[in-house]
Nucleic acid binder design. Structure first.
Lengths: 202, 202
DNA sequence: TCTCGCCCATGACATTTGTCATGGGCCACC
DNA sequence: GGTGGCCCATGACAAATGTCATGGGCGAGA
């Protein structure tokens, strides 16, 4: 009895390679493979996978948001998040979205196969060290707008650009940046952004 | 007659998956697999691969530097760079280091197998669009110290920190940043850093 | 020898960023 | 109704960043 898998990762070569790796397991069958977050739910509805393996950083919808959509539209499909970064905020959001497993790409291949089996057996699989850091990190202290401003700061060079992008005055942007900087115990917005990203808060 | 391959990628799961993918080809054999750039040359000397597939961003030594070491120490081993980012500067540096091929992880799996075969046949394989963008981008206009300062700016929050890290005065750092900002046609150091990274100049 | 480019530095100053105070509007909760 | 938190804004000002001028030292190449 095969476990049907859906793969979602925007890098085609990596996605094919994961498919090849999983095909080495006798009881796994990759029934769908997509490169964008917004293609996950439609593919799940079409192919009825038992487990969806979702990368986080994808175009169209990130893997965490795709997991939330799956929880609503295909609740029978379990989710394992596969990610480059074991960020506390990612883990928290994955669990909140109902993910049953969370695997970091640094992990040995056996961890992935084992995670899938245990998830199928009804367990929720989290690395204890990651769980500890997620609990220690607590929730993001940032308000929605502080987060918006930090996200906008990723691609903007100046406060004026952030302000234009979010339809705010420059003074307001400076205030939001200031509070974000304080909450992250940073010295400037670059450091605040880096910290919030590392925590998976964005 | 198998083509012997060496794999270098710091993410173990991805590395194993690539190994599985390549094993699907009858004439490929993965003879070595490492997770750090500084392990590449020793592994090549121990296992005599025909082709080394090197990720760029790895601890210990980046894939481009590892390629240069291979060119010296194991000149019979051809190099294919495997990268997340098709940055012009990466391509340029890869070619300068003697790499015979350059594959972006977004590419379909068949491109990788084909690249390896053609490299074995003596060709140098570059995507024409990437080559065009590398030629259009030209060489990095940054001096060594400008680059050092930008690299230091990745993890530093303030000019004072960059200065301390590089044993320079703050005024000197501000000058180097200023020239780097001008050369990259940026508005501040954050944007200059982003641009230089996107070009693969760092 | 001369020239040029890179490295490094000081200093003056313009511009931008970040801090803080203040306050109005709105909503949820006690 | 009152309170607190979030959103948004203005304004004053301190601190940091970025610009520009200037100049000494050094090495490579003509």
């Amino acid at each position: 009895m095969s476990i049907h898998l859906l793969l979602a990762d925007d890098q085609e070569l990596v996605r094919s390679a994961l498919g090849a790796l999983l095909s080495l397991e006798d009881d796994f069958e990759v029934v769908a493979s997509v490169g964008r977050g917004d293609e996950v739910a439609p593919a799940a509805l079409a192919h009825h996978p038992d487990v969806a393996l979702l990368d986080i950083e994808m175009p169209g919808l990130d893997g965490l948001a795709a997991a939330a959509v799956l929880a609503e539209q295909a609740p029978g499909c379990k989710v394992v998040i596969l990610t480059t970064f074991g960020r506390a905020g990612y883990l928290r959001r994955a669990m909140e979205a109902g993910a049953a497993g969370f695997v970091v790409k640094d992990a040995p291949a056996e961890v992935l196969a084992e995670t899938i089996h245990r998830v199928m057996a009804g367990e929720r699989i989290i690395d204890p060290a990651l769980a500890a850091s997620a609990l220690a990190a607590g929730e993001s202290p940032l308000t929605a707008r502080e987060r918006d401003v930090l996200v906008a700061a990723r691609s903007a060079a100046t406060v004026a650009e952030i302000a234009a992008a979010l339809y705010l005055s420059e003074g307001t942007v400076r205030n939001y940046l200031s509070t974000a900087i304080a909450k992250t115990h940073s010295r400037n917005r670059t450091e605040a952004l880096r910290f919030a990203e590392d925590q998976g808060w964005l």
